[in-house]
Amino acid sequence: MMELLNLWKGWLPELIDGYGLSLEVTALSLAIGIPLGLVLALAVPAKSRAIRITALTFVEIGRGAPVLILLQFVYFGLPTAGLTLTSFASAVVALACCTGAYTSEIIRAGFEAVPYGQKEAALVIGLNGVDALRFVVIPQGLRVALPALLGFSIMMLQATSLCFTIALPELVSRASNIGSTTFEYMPVLILAGLLFAAICVPATLFVSVLERRLGRHAVR
């Protein structure tokens, strides 16, 4: 037992370093992806056919293709078309697109959950379409979507583990390196798993508490 803890103590700095990178990638992908999701959520039901179809295609591909394929498409595929990005940039681009696609559906569901009476009230007091969206639908829709968005963010953190395949030195790749050099795969992977759980478990708990509290304050 003591031996295990000592091993862990030795590996921890390296793993934390990689974890920091995972968190950076997650944060950036969400910061770019969620606003992108909002734009797509507004574009999918648009009146213009061109906008609708472009947005829908983007969303279907972003949600239908495995994250691994998206990552490798950006890192290995784009260079053959002339655009070469670092593994960090590739990770952020691919994950941001993925986030945008998934969150657009989450946010759209949030908008639909806003009671129809709210939209009617906005109409009768003379707000035009843009103002109705801005002041009535979006603020309420985002509140509804918040728990699902947070849940998705937790999944995004786990998804960064796949960036191992595009040579990003994040947590899993560091753990795998240590494993392949020391052959102590199980201990190092357990530690990596614990590090993931350290954030994901409290975060999941927080989201379910948040869901309950938001449900309580909603106006009937």
Partner: peptide
């Protein structure tokens, strides 16, 4: 619609805005 005011059976106040803002919003925007 600006000539007509409407009051609904289910009130339809905006829950995320204060009472004052509920009444002021349309005045500012329209």
């Amino acid at each position: 619609r600006r000539k007509i005011g409407m009051v609904f059976q289910s009130f339809n106040l905006f829950p995320h805005l204060s009472v004052l803002r509920n009444v002021s919003l349309a005045q500012e925007r329209t």
